[in-house]
Design a protein around this nucleic acid. Structure first.
Length: 280
DNA sequence: AGACAGGGGAGTG
DNA sequence: CACTCCCCTGTC
């Protein structure tokens, strides 16, 4: 068992904002699968308690050393994002392993969280090493080279994404992914987009969630909806324009702004009517 | 029955 | 560039 005092951290918001998928809440504990780790964690006020990983891992994984109040102050440009920040304060960006992050978001295209989770769990069951935590069995995420059976990939209900996964499994290596950390944003992004199944949105997710590019601003339909409402007079504008605006307006921590707006868009605004009420 | 979804590829203009 | 159709699968 490990305990750690934390400041400016909310475990629930951090784990449930769609940046990571292989999590399970059981009896107040979050069971988390990531790369070759399987651990459980909970939070009571300003203390987290966890089993299965060490403190160093937790501090790095949840970006606990990043100065969140300073970041939030920097992105708090207006009353709209201000509301999102007030509501979801403590949400931090997780530092994922880039390969798992890549496959996770390839699986995410035209899908939803429960289905993404199911695909990733199936892939792990078919190709990953077995892990145990307190007699509970689970599976590590398979390394590149291991996801090598098209039929099994299809059996994971990956559908049209299966061929992308199979090809990435052959061509991608983790060292190369990690080497992108020191490149510029646009070079790293161009490199990721060479991988089939990775376009603008998914590349931005990989950059933001696993490679340390806090300025990345992934535009999905939820972000599109709320950004159009708040900053484009509810006009329909292209994803490219929204991303360019987001990165420019929020600056070097635009990715944090994106996560807070995303949570607000999904959790607090359902229909366009409610969107309008919120703005007025 | 048929459209649509937290996206992207390939083809076309 | 911007626009269109299509891709697996599940759901309304």
């Amino acid at each position: 068992m490990n305990k750690l005092k934390v400041r400016d951290f909310n475990l629930e918001h951090t784990l449930e904002c769609g940046q990571i998928f292989r999590i399970n809440k059981i009896d107040g504990w979050y069971y988390v699968n990531t790369q070759d780790k399987f651990f459980k964690i909970n939070q009571i006020r300003n203390e987290i308690e966890f089993y299965g990983v060490d403190k160093e891992f937790v501090v790095n994984f949840f970006s606990l050393k990043e100065n969140l109040p300073k970041i939030l102050k920097e992105i708090n440009k207006d009353k709209y994002i201000g509301k999102a920040i007030d509501k979801y304060r403590g949400l931090r960006l997780i530092k994922q392993e880039p390969w798992e992050c890549l496959i996770s978001f390839v699986c995410s295209s035209a899908s939803n969280i429960s289905r993404i989770k199911s695909k990733l769990n199936s892939l792990s069951r078919s190709f990953g090493k077995k892990l145990t935590l307190e007699k509970i069995q689970d599976y590590a995420f398979p390394l590149p080279g291991k996801i090598n059976d098209y039929k099994k990939i299809m059996d994971a209900k990956t559908g049209f994404r299966a061929r992308y996964i199979l090809e990435a499994n052959k061509t991608v290596n983790i060292k190369h992914l990690n080497s992108l950390r020191t490149q510029s944003y646009s070079l790293a992004k161009d490199e990721l987009k060479k991988i089939k199944g990775v376009g603008d949105k998914i590349a931005d997710c990989i950059l933001l969630f696993s490679l340390g590019f806090n300025q990345a601003f992934p535009v999905d339909t939820w972000i599109k909806k709320i950004m159009q409402l708040l900053y484009f007079d509810n006009n329909n504008v292209s994803n490219n324009r929204i991303r360019a605006f987001g990165m420019d307006y929020f600056g070097r921590y635009a990715g944090y702004a994106q996560q807070y707006l995303y949570m607000f868009s999904r959790r607090d605004l359902g229909t366009s009517n409610r969107l309008k009420q919120w703005k007025n």
